[in-house]
Nucleic acid binder design. Structure first.
Lengths: 109, 109
DNA sequence: TATATTCATTGCAATATTACGATGAATAAA
DNA sequence: TTTATTCATCGTAATATTGCAATGAATATA
C-alpha cells in the first residue's frame, strides 16, 4: 500500500486518524451501536444481528478491543462484550476537539 | 480486499463510516487542521507544511473535496482551498450523534 | 513565443484491509 | 469420555489504499 509516514505527523494527528480508522467500517459502527443499545452482547448475537460470518465479526471485535473501546468478560462458554466507558470518554474528547474546531472566521471562497 | 457489504448496513452507519474513513489518515487530519488554522491555503503551501509529495497531497485534497468537506477557488495560477462550513457542520452533527451515545447504564463487566 | 509556475491526472509498486473457510482451544452437557 | 457449543486464530483470495515519478493542462511572466 505504500507505508503511511506516521513519523511526520503529531501524536494527536496520528491518534485521531487511528480512532477514525476503526470507525471507518460500517460493521464496527453497527457493533458499537448494538453494544450501546443492548449494553452487553455475546459474539453469536452480533453474528446474527449484523449478518456477517463469525470469523469476520470476531476480527472486528478484536480491532475494537485492541484500541480499548470495548472489553470482554468470560461468561460460561461465551464472552460478554461491552463498551469500555473510560476509554470511550477519552476517545470522544479527542475526536470532539478535532470536529469542533473554530468555524467562525470568514471563508476565502 | 474483499468487498465491504454496505447493503446490509443502514444509510446512517455507512455515512458515519464514510466520514470516519476520510479522517482515518493523519495527512488528511493535518490538512484539515491547517485549513482551519490558516483559514485558506494553496496546494503548494500544504506540500511544504505537511512534507509529502505534491501528487500525494493533491490526492488527499481530492478525497476531501469529493466528500464535500473542503472546496477550492481558482486564484490566478493557484487554487485556494478552504473548509466548506455548511457541509462540515452537517458532518459534525452526524459524527457527534454517534460519539455521544448514552453511556450512563451499568456495564456488564 | 518561450519558459516558469502551479496543480491535476495517470500509472505503478508496495502494502493494508475485508471476508470467509478451516481449524484450534476451552468449557458445558450427555 | 464423547459430543456440542462458542469464540479465537490462521491462511488465503479479492480488493482498496498510500505514495511517488512522470506527464498533462492552464495561466503568468520574460
Amino acid at each position: 500500500m505504500g507505508i503511511t509516514k506516521t513519523e511526520i505527523f503529531t501524536d494527536q494527528q496520528n491518534q485521531i486518524a487511528t480512532f477514525a480508522k476503526v470507525f471507518g467500517h460500517p460493521a464496527r459502527v453497527a457493533i458499537l451501536q448494538h453494544l450501546f443499545k443492548i449494553n452487553a452482547c455475546i459474539c453469536g448475537d452480533l453474528v446474527e444481528e449484523i449478518g456477517l460470518a463469525q470469523p469476520t465479526i470476531s476480527q472486528h471485535l478484536k480491532e475494537l478491543k485492541t484500541l480499548g473501546l470495548i472489553k470482554g468478560a468470560i461468561e460460561g462458554t461465551s464472552i460478554c462484550y461491552c463498551i469500555d466507558k473510560d476509554n470511550w470518554t477519552k476517545m470522544k474528547s479527542v475526536m470532539m476537539q478535532f470536529l469542533d474546531q473554530d468555524i467562525s472566521k470568514e471563508s476565502c471562497c
